[in-house]
């Protein structure tokens, strides 16, 4: 019993010490950033990130530091990650726009959707999956209340209200669950990447580009691309990408040429 107590105390102390160290790193990163020592601030933030801890705000801060260091591809990558973790992070959304504008990076990888579909998707992905989950639970409780109203009320008008209210709430609950699932699925299993500072030449096949004829498209670093396939040849992982501006719409990039948000 005594040994167990000592173990528990040590574990708690260890966790607290770790949390204190992480907080100290984050605080020092903020101070370094304010003093325009961006490289040092970045190192502190990446150190925290390498410990496996992450959040939308941390990703945004790393992206902002890369932005200050004029590394637009990595800035875009981290801003995208911040947005994926929290679609309601307005700073990240705005920073993406500003970074693309400043770096003159086109964002047309997903420009193939119809206007209405694109608008709906934009609206749907402007909220986190858990936000839709909360709304779905509220809709479910409203549905139960409406069913109770339908069953218990003596007045016809209230019974009608209960019936149609329950039906509407049920539809809303199902739809919100589907949206929550979709948003979470896209966030967790997204298929896009960002062209790195080095990459940008999209080849026709998964092999090293030797001839300019092999290049089907050259994309600016920081451009978002849709990953559709991957192969490993000679220990190098290659991603097949699709882009509306590519002649054949599909090309290949080594994994080193892209960043995954």
């Amino acid at each position: 019993m005594k040994q167990l107590s000592i173990f528990l105390i040590m574990a708690i102390v260890g966790v607290c010490a770790h949390a204190t160290t992480v907080q100290a790193s984050l605080d020092s990163a903020a101070v370094l950033y304010d003093r325009h020592l961006y490289n040092d601030a970045l190192a502190a933030m990446l150190q925290v990130e390498q410990q496996g801890a992450s959040s939308s705000a941390l990703c945004y801060n790393i992206g902002a530091t890369y932005y200050r260091l004029n590394n637009m591809p990595l800035a875009v990558t981290y801003f995208e990650r911040a947005r994926l973790l929290d679609p309601g992070n307005d700073d990240a959304v705005q920073a993406l726009t500003i970074t693309r504008e400043r770096g003159q990076i086109a964002d047309d990888a997903f420009a193939t959707d119809h206007y209405m579909i694109a608008t709906f998707k934009r609206w749907m992905f402007s909220h986190a999956g858990d936000t839709y989950a909360t709304w779905a639970v509220v809709a479910f409780i409203i549905m139960l209340a409406a069913v109770a109203l339908f069953l218990l009320s003596d007045r016809v008008a209230l019974r009608k209200l209960g019936f149609f209210g329950a039906l509407t709430a049920l539809v809303a609950c199902v739809a919100l669950n589907v949206m929550a699932s979709t948003v979470n699925d896209v966030t967790d299993h997204h298929r896009f990447a960002v062209i790195s500072q080095q990459g940008g030449k999209i080849s026709a096949a998964p092999r090293v580009v030797n001839d300019s004829a092999d290049v089907v498209l050259t994309l600016k670093p920081g451009t978002r691309v849709l990953l559709v396939d991957s192969v490993t040849t000679d220990s190098v992982r290659w991603y097949a990408i699709e882009h509306p501006r590519a002649t054949a719409r599909r090309g290949w990039l080594p994994s080193t040429a892209v960043h995954r948000p």
Binding site: V48, A53, S55, L58, Y60, A95
Partner: peptide, 12 residues
Amino acid sequence: IAGLQSVSASQL
């Protein structure tokens, strides 16, 4: 872009 966002270790 906006300034840094506040991050606490407990949020990570």
